[in-house]
Design a protein around this nucleic acid. Sequence first.
DNA 1: CGGCTTTGTTGATCCAGGTCAAGGTGTTGC
DNA 2: GCAACACCTTGACCTGGATCAACAAAGCCG
Lengths: 241, 241
Amino acid sequence: MTIRQDIHNSEIPALCRSCEARHRGVCGALTTDQLVELSRHTTKRKVDPGTVLVSDADTIDSYANVLAGVVKLTKTLPDGRQQIVGLQFAPDFIGRPFKHESSITAEAATPVRVCAFPKKSLDRMIELSPELGHRLHVQALNELDEARDWMLTLGRKTAAERVASFLHLIARHSDPEKELGGEVSFDLPLTRADIADFLGLTIETVSRQLTKLRKDGLIAVENNRHITVFDVARLERRANV
Amino acid sequence: MTIRQDIHNSEIPALCRSCEARHRGVCGALTTDQLVELSRHTTKRKVDPGTVLVSDADTIDSYANVLAGVVKLTKTLPDGRQQIVGLQFAPDFIGRPFKHESSITAEAATPVRVCAFPKKSLDRMIELSPELGHRLHVQALNELDEARDWMLTLGRKTAAERVASFLHLIARHSDPEKELGGEVSFDLPLTRADIADFLGLTIETVSRQLTKLRKDGLIAVENNRHITVFDVARLERRANV
DNA sequence: CGGCTTTGTTGATCCAGGTCAAGGTGTTGC
DNA sequence: GCAACACCTTGACCTGGATCAACAAAGCCG
């Protein structure tokens, strides 16, 4: 078990309402009865950056929904080389249905709030609720599309294009409601090391490319974290999206 | 419409039996009634290498099952750089449920036999048969696992490791029944150009790495296509699997 | 405050893999 | 038989990004 199951009963109602509010959350697909049943075993947790939520080392017996923050999915070679293979934003689902071990590690990249439930309960609900199964199916297909997009980035783009693609991806998620365009500001949810692991580059190269974007007047950087993109269209051109 | 719907009634029974024989095929999940209904609109096709089955340019209104051969899924940048983001072997399913356009192109890499059906009919069946939806969900999750495995390869492995990983992947698919080990032989389903597009390398680098594996006594190559791996364990060590 | 650690930047150098160029091999059609 | 073509290999050279090294800046804690 990787996600601790400490029950905080007082938090349960709020939790599931907040899941439901987001279209990709799990809870919205259930009837009230099912929600009550599920919430009996549900816990909301706040975790610090670096906390491992799911490890590829052990068997999984819980799922989770991201309520806030960013979770990175990583793979590591025996010699330590690491690759981030996905980023999960609220209200994404974390877990691998229909299997008992995970081939990837899920780790909090920022302070994160998650809503965790035991695998067994949710597996039962998937069988009972086709609507829930359908939602998870749709999320899996979306993640597959994203993974394949990123394969193009990793296999064929230059360092400059990768960094621009990354900023564009974060900008898209920073305010999912708003149509992307003109000037945008956001905080990077990842350190330079994480960005490098996501882009298949080194931290030095990431740093140099960000400096280049800054000197070329495409972005402004404050405190190494807060980014302003002056013209999204120009960034897209650099990213070759 | 990208897959032509020429009906060859005489072939339909054979077709669905052959789908059913393979565990990941679509047809096995349906009742006889549903099979009959579906087969009314089903066509079996033989296509030559290079034939585009699904193009990212147009809207999709058909799905397909691979019966034999290998189909490559590709993405291309405006300037022509290309990346293969997946390989589909029999009896894989091709298509993107719950969406009307595809972000990738599917193209026959070898001579291929496919079993195609109109999107509408299958979409209806997905609604009727939870078992069918479940199968497609499982395949989507498997493809997601494979895509993420490959992201590690593209982002962090050296050319030598990539080529070894590729041979290992093909070896695994060449005889899925058999446990992989000792000496294995198979035909490469891809040209050097395709291999390069799959690995994010150039054809020259792929060629040099194959030569190196040959000179190091790990593999033998006949006619540029037929490969013998003398010791799978040694290949795995090179691939860093 | 000042020392310590973690994180990020910048410069100098190196090398894995890309690019360019030439030639080999096999297949198809006349 | 021999063009014409598609595909693959090999060599010589170049370059984008890695590596190595030094330093700056920002948290953290006594």
